[in-house]
């Protein structure tokens, strides 16, 4: 029995030491910088909170994340639903349609959107041709572009938990509701929707959390007109070498993410294999 414990310990040790040295220690080191500014222990946080500009960045980050979570959940609904209805070839077809974007680098996907959303790009030409607008819309370098790109990247994260929840619904409940005389809408509102709710909340939270920390997509599609918290952190370092402010911003972001995670952990699909990438 004793020997078994030692073996287990030896198996776990390399990864634990590696994470300790390469992950936990650097995080601790970074966060310590947030409290060691010359101007005082909490001066970095008061700088971030007092500044009108930084406050606006934080509000913008939240608004974009909220909008993205809302839109992804709405778009996820029909796909998750037909995944539960399809069989055989068409099921595989739809499932791979959801998984394919997962495989492709976020940078590549964002670059694709830059080509498509350009001022004289295909989407604008299409919109002009069908008469929706007569001059090109500005879809790039603003919140619109950021949201299109982020919804595209994060949509699979909303579809899969919702599909999981829909799959677990006992179809006999719907039959029973139908047999007892409830209409389609009533069955949906009182049976189907509440049973989908865990998957819905799980997916939406997951998307929201990932949106808060998103960097590449907002940086390329939003540019300087739609700055998010993660872009602000990067610019503190790259443009101003303001490590203590970057550290404080990072700490704020991480605390928000962990707090949201603690509240919603039971809805989230960690370690269920769906996210095995």
């Amino acid at each position: 029995m004793k020997r078994r414990h030692i073996e287990t310990l030896l198996l776990l040790a390399p990864a634990v030491i590696f994470l300790g040295l390469a992950f936990v220690a650097p995080l601790a080191r970074l966060f310590s910088l947030a409290f060691t500014d010359e101007a005082g222990m909490f001066s970095t946080f008061s700088t971030l909170i007092d500044s009108e500009v930084y406050r606006r960045v934080m509000v913008n980050t939240f608004l974009v994340a909220f909008a993205v979570a809302l839109i992804t959940v709405l778009l996820a609904w029909p796909v998750a639903y037909i995944l539960t209805r399809l069989k055989g070839f068409w099921f595989a077809f739809a499932l791979y349609g959801v998984l394919f974007p997962f495989w492709i680098s976020v940078l590549v996907r964002t670059f694709s959107w830059m080509i498509l959303l350009e001022r004289n790009g295909p989407l604008n030409r299409f919109l002009i041709n069908i008469g929706i607008t007569d001059k090109p819309l500005s879809l790039l370098f603003n919140d619109t572009g950021v949201m299109i790109g982020m919804v595209h990247v994060l949509l699979p994260y909303a579809i899969l938990p919702l599909y999981g929840a829909m799959l677990r619904i006992d179809q006999r409940l719907l039959l029973a509701s139908d047999g007892l005389g409830a209409g389609l809408f009533d069955t949906f509102r009182r049976i189907y929707f509440p049973l989908c709710l865990p998957g819905l909340v799980g997916g939406a939270t997951f998307v929201f959390l990932l949106s808060l920390g998103f960097f590449i997509t907002p940086a390329l599609l939003g540019g300087s007109n739609a700055i998010t918290l993660s872009m602000l952190i990067a610019s503190f370092i790259n443009d101003r070498l303001a490590w203590s402010l970057a550290a404080a911003g990072s700490l704020i972001l991480l605390v928000i993410v962990l707090a949201l995670l603690a509240v919603t952990a039971r809805f989230l699909p960690f370690g269920k294999g769906v996210y095995a990438r």
Binding site: F23, P26, G213, S230, A246, L254, V257
Partner: peptide, 18 residues
């Protein structure tokens, strides 16, 4: 699983510093 949860910008900045 923590490296999956911590926003990658935070990990990036922390690891860069160290």
């Amino acid at each position: 699983l923590a490296p999956m949860i911590v926003p990658v910008i935070v990990t990036a900045v922390a690891v860069y510093r160290s």
